[in-house]
Design a protein around this nucleic acid. Structure first.
Lengths: 200, 200
DNA sequence: CGCATATTTGCGTGGCTCGCAAATTTGTGT
DNA sequence: ACACAAATTTGCGAGCCACGCAAATATGCG
């Protein structure tokens, strides 16, 4: 990767991060594209060369992280049972990134994230990123199971189910009554869907 | 429901339908809000009293239909096993609406729908509608299984899994290699997730 | 029939996305 | 080291969109 591409990637991340930071701090509607561009040290117009909306910039980090789950799955040993490999892939990339990238227990930050996550435009972009990543996961599942993502339901069902587990964990973590550690929720959710959701 | 509310509902549906029709015919970016309002016989400004974007207007029909699945589930007999009740609820509202509301085998129409379904803004709104309806389904599942949607993962996992099945069926139907009747895909998808997705 | 309440509408404001072309930066071959 | 081709950034402008506000209009109840 040449200097050119590296710098592009840096700019992309700087923009996305700036978008997240400002939005969490001030609220989605109080951040102008201009502000994000300024924070990242580029022009307003350049922002739109990288992202076609504020929401997309915010969701880009989620997207990048989620796509890596598929990559991780591909690199799991062949002998590993499917659902085990998936759980390991999810944890390797997802739960890890959760700890490293985000502020720990800053109440103000978490409150901001909650607000952001409820904003309509963000929700739409977040879900788009989520399902796009899910498609990548379906392709990886197809590879691993010898099915065909263009013809069979199976890989999409697996990927969709895993995605649903992740979303459920996030949802309960952010909005649930009884707060539990995210990792525990995620492990629980993946365990339940892997076991086939028997009636409780 | 008084005349007032009935008329509001009619306007809402007329707007949503006009948005779909024009978008399918001309493509998302070649339809102005003005056009939709004109087609429905109201002012541009009134459109925004009902919907806050073109995409939302289009997705409104999906949303209304999807929410009814939850209602339908509530009205299934108590003795019916959960997954059976869900499958019946989905079919009662979803597959039915598929036949009645949409043009049958008009190739031009279907091509337009495919294009529309790929447009970023539509995708976001569609997914928002889908997950909103999914939340309603989770609530209904919680009711039926004696779990709590604010504390337990279970109802969200079930609803999410059902949602994933529906999306996978739609996806393969619209974009898959080997076209199969939608109803068959849907039945197959629901059957697989209900059975717990064993490795094939 | 008249009045309180909802709804529609027009207008104005600020913001956003994107096409285009000029300016700047970067990689490469000599 | 240097010059040139290719990629990237930037400024500008056009067109569209969402929404606040207040005036006009429609509705339904007593």
């Amino acid at each position: 990767m040449g200097l050119r591409e590296r710098k592009k990637e840096e700019t992309r991340i700087a923009l996305s991060w700036a978008a997240i930071k400002l939005t969490v701090e001030r609220g989605f509607d109080n951040v102008k594209v201009e502000d994000i561009a300024a924070e990242a040290g580029v022009s307003h117009r350049t922002f739109n060369n990288y992202f076609s909306s504020k929401g997309e910039a915010i969701a880009a980090r989620h997207f990048d992280r989620a796509v890596q789950i598929a990559d991780e799955l591909r690199s799991r040993p062949d002998g590993e049972p499917l659902w085990e490999a998936i759980a390991n892939a999810v944890f390797a990339r997802f739960a890890l990134g959760m700890q490293e990238a985000e502020r720990p227990a800053d109440g103000r930050w978490i409150a901001g994230v909650k607000l952001m996550s409820q904003h309509p435009e963000h929700r739409g972009e977040f879900l788009k990123a989520h399902t796009a990543a899910q498609d990548a996961l379906a392709a990886a599942v197809a590879e691993r199971t010898g099915t065909n993502a263009d013809r069979d339901l199976y890989p999409h069902l697996v990927a969709g189910t895993v995605g649903a587990a992740i979303l459920a964990a996030i949802h309960l973590w952010l909005h649930g009554d009884a707060p539990a550690p995210f990792e525990e929720l995620l492990r629980d959710a993946l365990g339940q869907v892997a076991a086939g959701l028997p009636t409780p």
